[in-house]
Design a protein around this nucleic acid. Sequence first.
DNA 1: TTGAAAGCGCTAACAT
DNA 2: ATGTTAGCGCTTTCAA
Lengths: 354, 354
Amino acid sequence: MSGDLREHAGAPTLEDVARVAGVSRATVSRVVNGVRNVDPGIQEAVRRAVVATGYAPNRAARALVTRRAGTIALVVSGVDGGCAGHDGPDAFAARVFADPFFGRVVAGVVGFLRPRATHPVLMFAETPAEREQVLGYLRQGSADGALIVSAHGEDPLPALVAAAGLPAVLFARPARPVPLSHVDLAHADGGRLAAEHLVARGCRRAATITGPLDVPAGQDRLSGFRDAMARRGQPYVPIVEGRFTQRSGEEAMARLLAEHPDVDGVFVGNDVMARGACQVLGEHGRRIPDDVAVVGFDDSAAATSGRLGLTTVRQPVEDMAAEMARLLQEHIETPERPVTSVVFAPELVVRESA
Amino acid sequence: MSGDLREHAGAPTLEDVARVAGVSRATVSRVVNGVRNVDPGIQEAVRRAVVATGYAPNRAARALVTRRAGTIALVVSGVDGGCAGHDGPDAFAARVFADPFFGRVVAGVVGFLRPRATHPVLMFAETPAEREQVLGYLRQGSADGALIVSAHGEDPLPALVAAAGLPAVLFARPARPVPLSHVDLAHADGGRLAAEHLVARGCRRAATITGPLDVPAGQDRLSGFRDAMARRGQPYVPIVEGRFTQRSGEEAMARLLAEHPDVDGVFVGNDVMARGACQVLGEHGRRIPDDVAVVGFDDSAAATSGRLGLTTVRQPVEDMAAEMARLLQEHIETPERPVTSVVFAPELVVRESA
DNA sequence: TTGAAAGCGCTAACAT
DNA sequence: ATGTTAGCGCTTTCAA
């Protein structure tokens, strides 16, 4: 091999590769970026020079001229003092990932981004200051756009991002309209699916443990369930509101059992709470599904992790997250692309619990 | 307000601010970066101009000249076909976050980084191709360094990163030595703590459900437990190996019960498995802790999410993750900084289960 | 204390 | 098909 591949300290640059290959920087750039109109022979020479020098394009330099960071932000946004208190410095992040839901979102996003050699920057925004930080980050051009997952319908971040004219896509429809694309699930249909299944297996005194009712998803699942039950002759459905945590599912079930000991079916707002409910039912000597049938929501890891497989309404979170990333990519590449919403259909997954 | 603040399309630049403030780019840069030796009056004028123009420094430009991306990578690394099969496109990510452990790592890292206006780029590396991608990403200068959390002791990524001369810090000691700093827990001490507690409450026939034994942490917890038990007159301890999942905890407990029906105490390798074990114990009519005492490991959300609080060995994951980030920062700022390892002490947290 | 000017490494016209 | 050149927006000597 030739001798003076590296005459200066830093990482090899386009210039270095060009010198070794005996061509101009522009040609190397073309080869590296896969632009055609380059002589195959030269292409080969350049490729060899790239390997010889150990060249890797400098991202900052590229971003500077292309005006693309080649990065997107994945923002998990909540509202200060949401459900649990504001414990440690970043208990929020830990709390967020306590639900398998967010792991699936990450999986879906990463699955879409990875083939494109892109990786998400993870951000949490719970306080106004943190929201400002997210905004600043985006405005610096550190990321080309944002994928926003709000823990609450009233989250102010989407509106701020939209107002700043930054590309963004939301997971779930915001409580009040925002000119941003979003993906969502037909939650009401999910509730209906659960109701039909419960009725079909003979439940006559079904109840429901809902998610937080200030989250549109929680509301929609409830109303879908309630409407379908009413249509099937059960206009009154006992309701207890939970917080999507296992603990809250336990408490809700205990209360339900105390107030309605004859309950024979429960539709629970998510799988994590459903697990808690099952636990309490077991402790109270109720057999599942014979005495009480339980239908969860999400089809998350919680649905299959226990002994008893949970019958549940599947939410294709990974697909939804991937679609969210795809939409964002489109908005970034085509700023004038109109805002849209993509709504996925839920699906009943029957296992042992109902 | 004055008129021609924006004469060209793009985002405002230093130049724009300088024009509005009536000073040079250099001065604006100084003010923005908090360099002293700037006349207070001018400082004020610049600050006003920044607000007036809505200026935000362009990160790519800054990174290009400072040779700092101002970003770090948080890499979760596994080995292809680890425990569960290679299901969906990115089941790995979902699987990873199914354990509350990683959420806590994220929380700790974010907690440290946020005040420094930095956010982690999340990457998963399970296959050789994915490891190459991580390496490429780092070599491009897209991130200044990496925080690596390996799911297996034999993970090849740390060695690759070290060989490339890239700043990185590991969570947990690698199976074979690598010239990289790491943080870790004194796992053996944790096992000892569990043993002492079990013996102290009168357990005479304790058993253990371990984590995967190809993970150093799993091994160390076991040997610490076993040694301490032996020293206290119980040289033989029944062992079943689990995979850190709730399901595997259930299976392990069922087996333990079948083979050693008289077991009166169990040390379980992590809280998630411990939950599974408790579940099975309950189903088999064993009261906890009276018939069988259960000690978990981690003190994760799983320890407090159920009805019965889990007695467990606390691993201060958030603190460890924050320390990892701090070490990385030092390595980035001081490349010649010698490699170190910071070992945290476990702590027994007594709740109801033992 | 402030300004002028030289790049950082890359892409994209434009010229050849 | 290839090379030349002009910046992208910023920091940072070096002069003044």
